[in-house]
Amino acid sequence: MTRSSLVARLSARFPHLMARDTELAVRLILDAIGDALAEGSRVEVRGFGSFALSYRPPRVGRNPKSGDQVVVPAKHVPHFKAGKELRERVDQLGTLPDGSLGIPPAVNV
């Protein structure tokens, strides 16, 4: 789902709100999450999940084109961990009454 499709879905669900207001609300929420992570804080949305920062130490990598060694500096990256309610909803998404996933096995060509 893209940001614009989220705005469209929320606008359809709440017709008393103008699309412009819905777009502003979505942008403010996402900006607030980004700002909190940029400050080093953790963001938790109960029933959905939590956003936090993970530290990746410096390492030596390889340039895939030339094979030369490249030093990759340390960095912090955002990490999302799904909450229990979200995991359960996603887990129930594709299950059939017999408990199978209902997804055909992948075929390697």
Rank of each mutant, 00 (worst) to 15 (best):
P104A: 09
A19L: 10
S5C: 02
K81T: 07
R3A: 11
Q69D: 03
S100R: 15
V60W: 00
R46V: 03
R42E: 03
Y55F: 10
A8K: 02
G47C: 13
G47R: 06
L53R: 01
S41F: 14
A12T: 08
L28D: 02
D68W: 06
F51H: 07
M18G: 12
N63M: 07
A36N: 05
D68M: 04
A52Q: 06
S4H: 12
L30P: 01
D68P: 00
L93Q: 00
G83A: 02
S66T: 15
G47K: 11
E88C: 11
L37M: 08
L10D: 10
K75R: 15
D31I: 12
Q69C: 11
P73H: 06
L28S: 10
V77R: 01
V70C: 07
D68A: 15
K84L: 12
D21V: 04
A19F: 08
V109H: 13
R62D: 05
S54Y: 00
A82Y: 13
G99M: 05
S11W: 05
R46K: 09
S66G: 01
E44S: 04
T95L: 14
P73K: 09
T2H: 02
T22S: 09
R46S: 11
A8I: 05
A19V: 06
R3W: 15
P64I: 04
F48W: 11
A106E: 04
A52H: 03
H76M: 11
K65V: 08
V26E: 07
V109S: 09
P64D: 01
V45G: 05
D35N: 14
T22I: 11
V90M: 13
P97E: 00
V109L: 12
A25G: 02
V90L: 15
L10A: 11
S5I: 06
L28G: 01
L6D: 00
R62M: 10
P58N: 05
D21S: 10
A8F: 10
V72N: 02
V45W: 10
P57H: 13
A19M: 07
K75G: 00
M18K: 12
H16Y: 15
V107E: 04
V7L: 11
R62P: 08
V7Y: 06
A38P: 00
V77P: 01
G67P: 02
E39T: 08
E85G: 07
V77F: 00
A12I: 04
